[in-house]
């Protein structure tokens, strides 16, 4: 590859170069990922239960799996719930993440190092462990939170944080946001480090206020990163599974079942892999539907970069 780069030769080479460069990535996405995706779509049109899984038999059922999901009124309750959950979590994650990133750029060096090390650790903790720790901090009988709140004067003895869907969702959101902020904050901070020092100095020399400086320098530098992080957060929170399932298995009384849990319970839990595949196809389509406008915006914003 470097050889290709080095040759500044004829126009033929230059034309082929970008395709050579994207070749491996394209192969990975189209073949290595495309194949299982296509096969998932194919499975979604089949009845693939344990029996077929073991016998290798193929049973086509057309759109039955989709019909089963789309005609279930609970599915639509769950979809609406998942959208709200996603919006709340993404907004919180991005707001806190941006705040932390800006802070990282302004605190002293030792604090910056400590804070980023803490963030990396938080990010690296396995989701299931994070969930267990929080579950336990908020435990009804043995939790530190109840203990501390009670000793601060409230009556939180034997308070259950998981007795209602809303309260359970609040704890889940706390876990999700706590673990998602580090990625956002560190990525944004990394993007900010790409701002040339001269530019900062120039704006500072103009005597611009912090807001002006932010809009003039920082925002343009991190804008495309903010967009991609928001995009990723939407995808991840929409599909969040581990934390929600581990906290209360979708309880109390099924009130925290989101789409990914629904797909798991109806598909894997019942050993209906066809239904599971159909559910994930529906999920991806919903996600792409929600993100279509945003996606177009992101691709378009790249052309600004090119002409800059």
């Amino acid at each position: 590859m470097p050889g290709q780069l080095a040759r500044s030769g004829g126009p033929g080479d230059t034309r082929a170069l970008p395709y050579l460069l994207i070749g491996p990535a394209l192969f990975a996405m189209v073949v290595m990922l495309g194949w299982p995706v296509v096969s998932a779509v194919v499975i979604s049109l089949q009845q693939l239960d344990l029996a077929q899984f073991f016998s290798g038999e193929t049973v086509w059922v057309g759109f039955d799996n989709y019909r089963e999901i789309l005609t279930d009124s609970f599915f639509w309750t769950v979809t609406a719930r998942t959208v709200v959950f996603t919006v709340v979590n993404v907004l919180l994650t991005m707001a806190v993440g941006l705040g932390v990133a800006l802070l990282l750029g302004r605190v002293g060096r030792p604090l910056r190092l400590t804070l980023s090390a803490v963030l990396v650790v938080v990010w690296a903790i396995p989701q299931i462990t994070a969930t267990v720790v929080f579950q336990w901090l908020f435990d009804q009988q043995f939790g530190v939170v109840n203990h501390v709140l009670t000793s601060l004067g409230g009556d939180f003895r034997d308070h259950s944080w998981f007795s209602s869907g809303l309260s359970t969702f609040a704890i889940i959101t706390l876990i999700v946001v706590w673990q998602a902020v580090p990625f956002v904050a560190l990525s944004l901070y990394a993007a900010m480090t790409a701002i040339p020092a001269e530019l900062r100095e120039a704006v500072a020399a103009d005597g611009a206020g912090p807001w002006h400086a932010y809009w003039a320098i920082t925002w343009p530098a991190i804008k495309s990163m903010v967009m991609v992080l928001t995009f990723l957060s939407v995808i991840w929170d929409f599909k969040a599974f581990t934390q929600i399932y581990a906290v209360r298995g979708g309880g109390p009384d099924r009130s925290t079942i989101t789409l990914s849990l629904y797909a798991y319970i109806e598909g894997i839990g019942k050993n209906h892999y066809g239904v599971a595949a159909a559910a994930s196809v529906v999920m991806v389509l919903l996600l792409l539907g929600l993100l279509a406008a945003y996606l177009r915006l992101m691709v378009r914003s790249l052309d600004e970069d090119m002409t800059r």
Binding site: L26, L33, V299, L302
Partner: peptide, 20 residues
């Protein structure tokens, strides 16, 4: 290509477990 990169990001990897 860029659109593809973004779309690929939405792929539900957990759901691809069985096909993969």
């Amino acid at each position: 290509f860029l659109t593809l990169v973004l779309i690929v990001q939405t792929a539900p990897f957990e759901a691809l477990m069985i096909p993969m």
